[in-house]
Write a protein that binds this DNA or RNA. Structure first.
Lengths: 126, 126
DNA sequence: CTTTCATATGAATAAATGTTCATATGTTTA
DNA sequence: TAAACATATGAACATTTATTCATATGAAAG
């Protein structure tokens, strides 16, 4: 039993009764529950999309590859801020880049990103 | 011209030249750019999914409606934490609830949520 | 090789966020 | 109505996070 549950039992002395109705369902769900790491990765993915600046960057890139200064011009965000955020997006493998002369050309790393973005946009327009 | 761009010009004296190649594309994208509010809403949506506890709660609820104590039992998170997070999810209209006796029964508020979650899971399993 | 341009990065700061603890609210049961 | 249970909530705290400023790196042009 986890430490947290022990702690809760100390407070309450015995287990909640309310779940009785659903107890079978809960057991079943528990057995098929994705592991801690999967939930972590999933939330990390969404966390990357959970910032205005990053979502703008991704939207811009969803229209086609572009260099940092293009993004800066398009979004009215500091070059430094864009660069910091691009680093995070790159770490999360949501974007990739290549160098071309003095420029760094960034692009969306795969189609899933675009799909998730679209889903989100569809959701908020309701 | 925005304050930020003015500031950048003060530092650089003149505009970046690198974008020349893409300048037409940039203009076009800029014209079709979603407004500030849309980006804000979009990032707020993803922000809600960008936390381990909330994503677990949503996953649990995606299996069927359940009361708070079921969620607590399933996820090994404090009742208080669950309650706080449910409030946020409710505010964001990602979940809805009804009362039933002493219990509060929560459920996913619409199918988009489930779809976005699935997309995310598909993405991370690669 | 020095200058200029494009990008990256470290440190500092301010703001946002999640959890915990204590307690309040609301509902049922004795 | 008092006790027990389920849930909600406010305040405090620690952590994370995004931006800014200053500066470093890297590439090309003169």
């Amino acid at each position: 039993m986890s430490e947290r549950k022990v702690k809760q039992q100390e407070q309450k002395t015995e287990h909640s009764e309310c779940g009785g109705k659903y107890i079978e369902m809960i057991k079943k769900i528990n057995d098929n529950m994705p592991c801690e790491e999967e939930f972590y990765d999933l939330s990390e993915l969404f966390k990357m999309l959970g910032d205005s600046t990053r979502v703008k960057i991704l939207y811009a890139l969803s229209q086609g590859e572009m260099c940092v200064c293009d993004i800066v011009e398009l979004l009215d965000v500091t070059q430094s801020a864009v660069s910091h955020q691009l680093r995070l997006l790159k770490q999360a493998r949501l974007v990739k880049y290549r160098r071309s002369g003095k420029s760094a050309i960034y692009s969306i790393s795969d189609d899933h990103v675009y799909t998730i973005l679209s889903m989100g946009m569809e959701h908020i327009s309701e």
